[in-house]
Design a protein around this nucleic acid. Structure first.
Lengths: 336, 336
DNA sequence: TGGTCGGACTAGAACGATCTAGAAGACTAT
DNA sequence: ATAGTCTTCTAGATCGTTCTAGTCCGACCA
């Protein structure tokens, strides 16, 4: 049923309109060099035949593909937000986005290859896990922009959020509420976990406070585990590696009858969907995904079009205060 | 800096290896017709030059693109699971997947066009929102498979989960635990909300019970709202439209001091990531995303390769029992 | 009158692969 | 020796575009 009829080509339109292929091409891409009257006629016949340019042939000929390759991880809700924003920014800049997911059994390298195969002019990789060398290798072929990771060598662009500023913001906020026993639950092996942990450590020391780091991870379960540990010697405030971890921590506290923020303040990171839920109302450090995405796309386009050298863009995150942090009642008593 | 040198072509490899382009082509795609010794030599020089076939040219020539277009919604975590599984199944079948997201400001129609432009041989659309007519229009050009929606006319394939069976399963399970006052919190305008609601209604009646439907929606907040309403006259069991809604319901109960499953049993739908969290442990109806994805990909490939007529595949969901449903202590007393 | 200019249009060569048809050489069968 | 068959390899057409280098023709100017 419904035998797929061959889709019409430039040639078909040209014949039907009684002109040359070249002229149809000119008309279709709105280039100058066609009389208004013929232009109309050609457009009309094209519409009638349901003509639709074959992007493969088009791209093959004109070396430009106007394609931006975007590698994301299908299991990260936060990446989805970025994808969303990237689409918008790219189309505003006159580019298309080719998506490629990293999934179970589909490593980053594979995702990248696919994108290069379809002719992406630049690569945007969200939180790349490849080594600096591997990234540099690709960067020799096309501009590569690393998103959310900045230690990528100087052949690769990076757009990231200032983790140092984010953690500092969190600590300052808690300090201003009178907290002094502030603990960090880290992200284990997750990207940017190291930087957040180290910033926490140095900032605490700088303020003359004792840093305490509880091992964690990027998921709810990791937070749960850390929460158990914390209960043995409850601090007055906790800075989690991310929102999901914070959720786990809060859940473990709740199960133990510890109330938030009365007994302990909790701060998340990412300002994700969860943080905004009415029954969570988690205060969190926002990296502002749409802005990051726009910056990454902008960077990629600039690299393609201009001959700018690679560089890095760092955006400053901001605090979104909700209901999980509160003033310490008996401020300034116990310090370590 | 690192001027992008033109990427090597078949011609370059051919010259370097001292053979014809055609032979290189044969070797590169592993076709028969080359002596083992030359094959090795060609492969080696190709590797040395960093040769990589240009998919645009390749696809232009060979009418086959071996590409499956997959349209998903970037804001749906459940879709991400499907994307994951689809990749695996497609590559097992020798196909590639081209992804296109529906996002804010990027309607489904746009996503589909992009995929057709790159030459997808079939379209898999997760929970399509287009009308039957619009879908049929595309189906005239390429096979279209609708995933998670089955009222799509008979030109379009569909792969869906049997909502009727899912709800029946849920009701039967609760009945077997002695529950009789079972309420359904529906999904509002979400896809397949209607079918689940109607099945609930008829199944309840069939068992001689009074159906009670509380309006809801697909999100946590919707569940919260429904939870408030339910508290006025607490049933012994609730079947939520999906897991996120169930989460909201449970949260509202928890806030009111109602304990689960002692005071009330709650059943979710989707068996999503959330349901599995150790502090949630939600019993849920699983649609088994990987299986659905595999079926959709399989269907698409069959349509492309064979000349099978469109049809629909329906998979039966199953119950995953965790800790939110329990035996009713005083079974069989009140029945509305 | 003739030369130059510019607008509208076209023929044919790219782009980088695949595919068809056939050539060259080695081997076997008659 | 001749014909037939395999295997290995190649020349050249082809996919549907865009690009380059024209051609044609009327208008304008000295």
């Amino acid at each position: 049923m419904t035998e797929q009829q061959r889709r019409p080509t430039l040639m078909d339109v040209a014949e039907a309109a009684g002109v040359s292929r070249a002229l149809v091409s000119i008309v279709m891409r709105g280039a100058p060099g066609a009389a208004e009257s013929t232009r109309q006629r050609v457009l009309e016949t094209a519409l009638q035949l349901g003509y639709r340019a074959d992007s493969r042939a088009r791209l093959l000929r004109s070396s430009r593909t106007k394609l931006l390759g975007l590698v994301f991880s299908s299991s990260q809700p936060f990446h989805a937000e970025i994808v969303d924003a990237a689409y918008a920014e790219a189309s505003a800049r006159g580019y298309e986005i080719a998506l490629s997911a990293v999934a179970g059994g589909r490593p980053e390298a594979r995702a990248i290859e696919t994108l290069l195969d379809v002719g992406a002019e630049a690569l945007i990789i969200i939180a790349p896990t490849l080594s600096m060398d591997e990234l540099a290798l690709h960067a020799r072929q096309v501009p590569v922009v690393s998103l959310l990771r900045d230690d990528v060598g100087d052949l690769v662009d990076s757009v990231s959020s200032d983790d140092h500023a984010g953690i500092s913001l969190a600590i300052d906020h808690l300090l201003s509420l009178g907290h002094r026993r502030i603990v960090h639950v880290d992200g284990g092996t997750a990207v940017s976990s190291d930087k957040r942990r180290e910033t926490y450590r140095t900032e605490m020391v700088r303020h003359g406070l004792q840093p305490v780091i509880v091992p964690g991870g990027p998921g709810e379960e990791d937070g749960m585990g850390a929460g158990q540990i914390l209960q043995a010697d409850l601090p007055t405030a906790v800075i989690a590696f991310n929102d999901r971890s914070a959720l786990g921590i809060m859940e473990s506290f709740r199960a133990a009858g510890i109330s938030i923020p009365t007994d302990v303040s909790v701060l998340g990171y990412d300002d994700s969907h969860f943080a905004k839920l009415s029954y969570v109302q988690l205060s969190s450090v926002s990296q502002d995904a749409p802005l990051l995405a726009a910056a990454a796309v902008g960077r990629a386009v600039d690299r393609i079009e201009g001959s700018e050298p690679p560089g890095s863009v760092v955006r400053t995150p901001h605090l979104v205060l909700r209901k999980t942090t509160a003033q310490l009642p008996d401020a300034g008593l116990n310090s370590s």
